[in-house]
Every structure is written in structure tokens, then in C-alpha cells.
Design a protein around this nucleic acid. Structure first.
Lengths: 142, 142
DNA sequence: TGTCTTAATAGAAACGATTTCTATTTAAAA
DNA sequence: TTTTAAATAGAAATCGTTTCTATTAAGACA
């Protein structure tokens, strides 16, 4: 789906600017998750004028539009990753080389099995958190 | 288990200082997750001299020792929560009132069911991420 | 109970990732 | 084209978090 970037951007009412497209291309050609600053460095090779805030803003917008995904990193810095897999799934991320692998199963136990058996990697930790509204707040907010 | 704080601290080779105990008490008496700054405000009611870095340091140490748990919040700020449940489980956190509820099942699908049926809350999003080392990095690092 | 060693702390300062602000530019609709 | 609202550059601010250094205190041991 995000193979046709212009269409995807139009769908989100985002203007097709060269910089927006470039950010998507950079993520597209990258097999690991990247920090805003790293993407900025790459952008500076392509544009004479390019501000870091522009990179931050675009990444946030694209993430908001579910074109790219935000990585929940233990160091609490921002990282982004472009994932072509459209179906619901989760990610295994390598803390060392930053590679991202889709995980199509959604149970943690089995997930860890999959990481051990299929990915042949090692699980150091995992984050599983459901965010939402509790009974009481649901009442208040509707 | 963390009912006997002094013992728990001793187990971790952490000295039993009044401030360390107070931080645990504050979290103990609180049913929601708290930010370091909020805990600091509470501490200032109990101590004439108390630095914010002390709060940060202690929270990190206690979290490192698995006495308290760190919340992975969408706003990427730090929050901590004291959970008495010793067995492996996950948390449902309310983004509105910050209440934390244990989730004893570990599969996301079933988890969302549980949130809807048992907690009678609403899932807005969830984070499921397995952190570790991929095949290649495992080779390098050992 | 006092002494000693090392961890813990206060307070100031630094840090640095992220965001805000304002004037300018540009995409793309009309 | 012309127009208009979105996008951008660049500087500056923000603020949660960490670092640094001198001082204090926990608790092991005599």
C-alpha cells in the first residue's frame, strides 16, 4: 500500500512535498528503524535547506496517519520504521542492529517461542501494554 | 512481597534510607502510576531537604530491582507503579485516571476481550514489543 | 557504643531530544 | 494565473532527565 506514496499522502490530505516523499523513500530503503536525527542527516544529502523540525513534524504526521510506525524503545527516544505489512501484527526489534521483524502471532508466550525458534534471536525484554479508558473514565468521557 | 520494604531493600543491597522507604510508601498508598515530579512533590511534604535527582535515582534503582514497574506511556515521560502481584502478568493502564489493572493473560486478542468484558474499559491502543537480539547480533555478542 | 567505609544525598548546573515561534515559501485548488 | 492554506527554515525555547561535586549518613565491624 505505501508503495504509491503520492496516493497515500493524498488519502491523508497531506500535500505531496519533495521532502515528505524523501522521508518516506529513506525509510523505504532502510531495513532498520531510524531516529529523526538520522533521517535528517540523510535528508541533508538531498536538500540544501532542510530543518530538523520539518523531519520531526513529518514523521509525526506520517505516524499519525499509520503510514509509518513508531518504535517503543527502552531508551525512550523516538524511532520510526516503515512497514509494508498491512495486516495486524507486531514487531520484534533488535536492540543491537535495529532490524525489525514482523511477528504475526499476538500472544507473548508463543511470541517468545517464535523469537527463539524462528528468528533464532534472544528476547531480552518485552513490552505489552494496553492503553485505554477504564470503566469509570469511559462513563465520564462517553 | 514488597510488603516488607526493609527486607526487600536489603535483598537488593540497597541501604534502608528514610527517603527510599518513603518513596515506596508513597507508591504503596497510591493506586495510580506517578511521575518522578509528582513523587517529589509528595516527598517535599515529608522532608525539608529532598532533591529531584534523588527521586529519579531511587526510582531507577527500585525499577531495576523489579520492586516497582515502569510504565510505557505514549507521551514518553516516566511513570512508576508499585505492583504487589508477583506472578508474570501485564498491565492495563488508564490514560485518563491512570489506574492500573493487572492482566493475567498474555495474549493480546484475549487481552482485549478481557479489557472489554472484565474491566469494562475501552482499549485505545496497545503496545506489544519484544526487545532482544536478532540472530546475527546474538552471534556477535554471544 | 564509637569508628570507619562506602553508598546516598543536596543543590546547582548541564544536557539534549523535542517543540514552539514567526516570517517565508510552495503545493495545488480555483 | 491567481489565490490561499499548508509546509518549511532557522532560531530559540522548553523541560524532563542526568551529571557533577561536596557533604551526609547507613550499617559493618571493632
Amino acid at each position: 500500500m505505501p508503495n504509491d506514496f503520492p496516493l497515500t499522502l493524498k488519502r491523508l490530505n497531506l500535500k505531496i512535498t519533495p521532502k515528505r516523499v524523501a522521508i518516506l523513500e529513506i525509510l523505504m530503503n532502510e531495513s532498520v528503524y531510524l531516529s529523526p536525527e538520522e533521517i535528517w542527516k540523510e535528508m541533508k544529502k538531498r536538500f540544501v535547506k532542510i530543518g530538523l523540525p520539518t523531519v520531526y513534524r513529518n514523521l509525526e504526521e506520517l505516524s499519525e496517519g499509520n503510514i509509518i510506525s513508531k518504535v517503543t524503545h527502552p531508551n525512550r527516544q523516538l524511532y520510526y520504521y516503515l512497514c509494508l505489512n498491512q495486516s495486524h501484527h507486531h514487531h520484534f526489534i533488535c536492540l543491537s542492529c535495529r532490524r525489525v521483524e514482523d511477528i504475526n502471532f499476538c500472544g507473548v508466550k508463543e511470541l517468545e517461542e517464535e523469537v527463539k525458534k524462528k528468528i533464532k534471536g534472544k528476547v531480552l525484554s518485552h513490552v505489552l501494554q494496553v492503553n485505554g479508558l477504564c470503566k469509570n473514565c469511559l462513563k465520564k468521557t462517553g
